[in-house]
Lab assay of single mutants.
Amino acid sequence: TRVETATETAWISLVTALHLVLGLSAVLGLLLLRWQFPAHYRRLRHALW
């Protein structure tokens, strides 16, 4: 049971790290898009909202 718990903890930390990385890359990508294509971003936002 001790090994299982350790594996579970490792998986949880791995998944958390993955989610953090994905979230950060998504935010960075959005910022980059907004910085590179302001007109396109505004049009996209206008279409979405």
Rank of each mutant, 00 (worst) to 15 (best):
T1D: 07
T1H: 13
T1F: 13
R2S: 13
R2C: 10
R2P: 12
V3H: 00
V3C: 02
V3Q: 01
E4I: 10
E4D: 08
E4S: 11
A6K: 12
A6G: 12
T7S: 11
T7V: 14
T7P: 10
T7K: 14
E8S: 04
E8C: 05
A10Q: 12
A10P: 04
W11S: 02
I12P: 03
I12G: 01
L14R: 01
L14Y: 05
T16H: 04
T16P: 04
A17M: 10
A17V: 11
A17H: 03
L18W: 09
H19L: 05
H19F: 04
H19R: 00
L20Q: 04
V21F: 14
V21E: 04
L22H: 05
G23P: 08
L24G: 06
L24A: 09
L24K: 02
S25L: 10
S25G: 06
A26Q: 02
A26P: 00
V27M: 14
V27K: 02
L28F: 09
L28D: 04
L28R: 03
G29M: 13
G29H: 00
G29D: 07
L30G: 11
L30F: 12
L31T: 13
L31K: 06
L32W: 02
L32M: 06
L32Q: 01
L33A: 14
L33E: 05
R34A: 02
W35Y: 15
W35G: 15
W35I: 15
Q36K: 14
Q36P: 09
Q36V: 15
Q36F: 06
F37Y: 15
F37L: 11
F37P: 01
F37M: 09
P38W: 04
P38R: 15
P38Q: 15
A39Q: 14
H40T: 08
H40I: 08
H40Y: 09
Y41P: 03
R42L: 13
R42A: 12
R42E: 08
R43M: 09
R43H: 00
R45P: 06
H46Y: 09
H46A: 05
H46V: 08
A47H: 08
A47S: 11
L48A: 06
L48M: 08
W49K: 06
W49T: 08
W49G: 06
